[in-house]
């Protein structure tokens, strides 16, 4: 069961994987995990670091949760999921503090806050608690990479417009040092995300794929 890699299964897994990249992209389609998306995208390095840390937590928690799902009573599943997720967030924070101290310091409070990232708990609830470990891994990888790519896109735009650099290398010259700043300050985050979301809505409309509606967010991130 666990390692049934028949041809049909591979097709199905790559379908699950692809879904997180575009049709159910966590940032632009599901609108989950907005706090890190806005807060750490002031540079590409921070965006990718945050994305990879979240991907690791997502993969590990999806896998563990789908393995232990028969043992978890339905009533206490959310606290249970949170404990699993918090464990891996602690692991990732200790590892990053040891190996990438500068990045950890610049991510600051948002590294421990991966625990309450709706993408992770949302996938645990909506996917891992209902599917096999292998498909949960594929789902976690797809969602994680979709999240990382979205963050990297926003991070690139904000870094290039805000500081004129890409990954710390200067590429734009002659920017006015007084007006460029807004993109690395708080308003620039809202502005970039809002405009990108509008752009993707517009592109999605033109391609028009009827019947593909993003699924409703999980209970704890639902809106009133």
């Amino acid at each position: 069961m666990l390692l049934d890699l028949g041809k049909g299964n591979i097709m199905r897994l790559s379908g699950v994987f692809y879904r997180g990249l575009v049709p159910e992209n966590p940032v632009f389609r599901l609108v989950l995990g907005m706090c890190p998306t806005l807060a750490v995208t002031t540079s590409v390095e921070k965006s990718v670091g945050m994305g990879l840390a979240s991907t690791f937590v997502l993969l590990a928690s999806n896998f563990i949760i789908s393995l232990i799902k028969p043992l978890v009573p339905k009533e206490v599943r959310i606290p249970f999921f949170i404990v699993v997720i918090a464990t891996f967030v602690t692991v990732v924070r200790l590892l990053m503090t040891a190996y990438t101290p500068a990045l950890t310091a610049s991510l600051g409070i948002f590294l421990p806050l991966i625990v309450v990232n709706c993408v992770i708990l949302g996938r645990a609830e909506a996917f891992a608690s209902k599917n096999s470990p292998l498909s949960s891994l594929a789902d976690g990888l797809g969602m994680g990479i979709g999240f990382t790519l979205s963050l990297a896109l926003i991070g690139s735009i904000r870094e290039i417009l805000g500081t004129g650099t890409f990954l710390g290398i200067p590429i734009v010259f002659g920017l006015d040092p007084y007006t460029q700043n807004i993109f690395i300050l708080a308003p620039g985050g809202f502005l970039t995300l809002g405009l990108l979301m509008g752009l993707f809505n517009w592109l999605g409309k033109r391609k028009q794929s009827p019947g593909v509606k993003p699924p409703s967010p999980p209970d704890h991130c639902r809106t009133v």
Binding site: L185, P187, F190, G194, L195, M197, L199, W202, K205
Partner: peptide, 23 residues
């Protein structure tokens, strides 16, 4: 509003304006 901006995108753009004001 233009259709693609309705809902969440315009909410973010409004938040950008509020954020500038709070600066």
């Amino acid at each position: 509003l233009p259709q693609p901006l309705r809902g969440i995108p315009i909410a973010f753009l409004t938040a950008a304006g509020m954020s500038i004001a709070f600066f």
